[in-house]
Design a protein around this nucleic acid. Sequence first.
DNA 1: CTTTTGACCTGACAGC
DNA 2: TGCTGTCAGGTCAAAA
Length: 271
Amino acid sequence: MPELPEVETTRRGVAPRVVGRRVKRLQVYDARLRWPVPADLAKRIEGRVIDRVDRRSKYLLFRFGDDTLLVHLGMTGSLRVHRKAPPRVLHDHVDLMLDDGTTLRYHDPRRFGAMLWVEGPADSHPLLRALGPEPFDASFNAEHCWNLARGRNVAVKLALMDNRMVVGVGNIYASEALFRAGIRPTARLKTISRARFGRLVEAVRAVLEEAIASGGSTLRDYVGSQGERGQFQFRHDVYARKGDPCRVCGTPIRMIRQGQRASFYCPRCQR
DNA sequence: CTTTTGACCTGACAGC
DNA sequence: TGCTGTCAGGTCAAAA
């Protein structure tokens, strides 16, 4: 689902509606997410004020003083803000009711997402501790990729989706970034030059930036904080465009399978 | 250590 | 109209 642009779009939509608000009531309708929603979450969170909403990788971090509500949207999750909550529909699993009457509602058909409570510094939480650099951070650069690539035989597309190289890049944006960088998804990491990594870094940043500006990509489930669909799917160069002409050279886009995931590329533009 | 595979879960769709 | 198989935006844990 949500890759970085969709999570960031959600963050930007949700934050202004919830920051400064006090949680009046937490209602868990179905606790069976990737990990169970903690049974004592209501007790911990009710009465507390949301100070800030941050994002790390694809996690949303709702800050309550020194403690954090950590939310992941998995493949099909979405978070919506309702001025007045409509009746629950299938797969609405959690409601955070705030002191001004608005409701933050978590919806997730496949339940691959997560909602956890972290006391104290969230950075040291097992889920966040080992994450690589944020794509827009200076520490994501050609040097970093080059160092990681030493002796590694994996395909570059798999490495892009591995959060040690960079976080936030999933199946859609990995294919899109590689197209823009002119690199085949199957290229072995150790064979890529420093200069090409430089181009890849810039391509990742550019595609994520444009996707955020378009409100992300909506393939099926994803919607933003007001229920709005993303628009970037109309601007994909390769993803889900198997057989369609490359926007640059007209060659039909190819689909292959890597690590049980579909990859798309232009056989002429990407070497 | 690296790399691959299976698992979690529901729904949509293609083909018989 | 069923039924079966495949696929879907993530990522952790175990196997090789």
